[in-house]
Write a protein that binds this DNA or RNA. Structure first.
Lengths: 137, 137
DNA sequence: CCTTGACTTCGAGCACACTCGAACCTCTAC
DNA sequence: GTAGAGGTTCGAGTGTGCTCGAAGTCAAGG
């Protein structure tokens, strides 16, 4: 994966090294399948550049976006809302208040999830103890 | 909902009062839809008695089972595994070790979920702070 | 030149957990 | 005895988030 067409080889202010990746590398690193990566792109969560052969070329920026998408998915944010979030991102800085809002609302949801999950875990533990199970002492 | 046909009006040892419920009461109380309650029965998670009119009659025991099913669903146990669990329950006490095992394994999964969720929450909080958001101080 | 293999697009298919609708039944109240 | 509410069964439909397969392209190695 060596790419030269890309003129936009940005070097970030912290002197980050540009490691450009093909889709299977990225699949490896992120734990997502190539299918899923392409799917995310199809539905507009990602916009990935192509090399001269038309192959996808992932920049560190893309990897960071993928990582964040993964976090949002792990907390069950619906794809639609993630789409909304990245629409806002792609609209530039003017949308920051709305993005913040979206994230704050989502955080509430995640905290609620945590509460539900913890109380369900307690219920399960109670049941386990009922079976005389080795609950953590 | 007054029922007399049911000869099996068990009074539990702690003198629990028999409050027998129709499906819509139960839907109300549990937050599940009547559709879902019937669905759970179809797939074998519940076996609910009928009154003389063929209407479902829920006993406290059934409500407790429903509550536990809900806990398992809240923690993303797949329906298949919940089916398995209640197959074991319905097989009587001999299956208790296996039930315990199933629950212990599920607890592991839930704890993993909690860890994932918490670390994703941190990531989201970090992003929120990046937006200058009012994270909890 | 030819094979190999990793990539491309596109539409279709799948698994899961419900969710709904049609057609029918039955109790209660008037 | 008829209306209406609320139940019944059954099969089919829905939404979400992937997941897959077919058919084609491209560049490198032998």
């Amino acid at each position: 994966m060596s790419v030269r067409i890309i003129d936009d080889a940005q070097s970030t202010d912290d002197g980050e090294v540009q490691k450009i990746r093909g889709i299977s590398d990225v699949a490896q690193e992120t734990g997502l399948s190539t299918h899923t990566l392409r799917y995310y792109e199809r539905i507009g969560l990602l916009r990935i550049q192509r090399d001269h052969a038309g192959h996808r070329v992932y920049f560190p920026e893309d990897l960071r976006r993928i990582a964040f998408i993964t976090r949002l998915r792990q907390t069950d944010m619906p794809i639609r809302e993630i789409q909304r979030y990245f629409e806002l991102v792609d609209q530039g800085p003017a949308s920051e208040p709305e993005r913040l809002n979206l994230l704050l609302r989502h955080r509430e949801a995640v905290q609620a999830q945590l509460v539900t999950l913890q109380s369900a875990l307690e219920a399960i533990d109670t049941k386990i103890e009922l079976y005389g199970g080795s609950g953590q002492p």
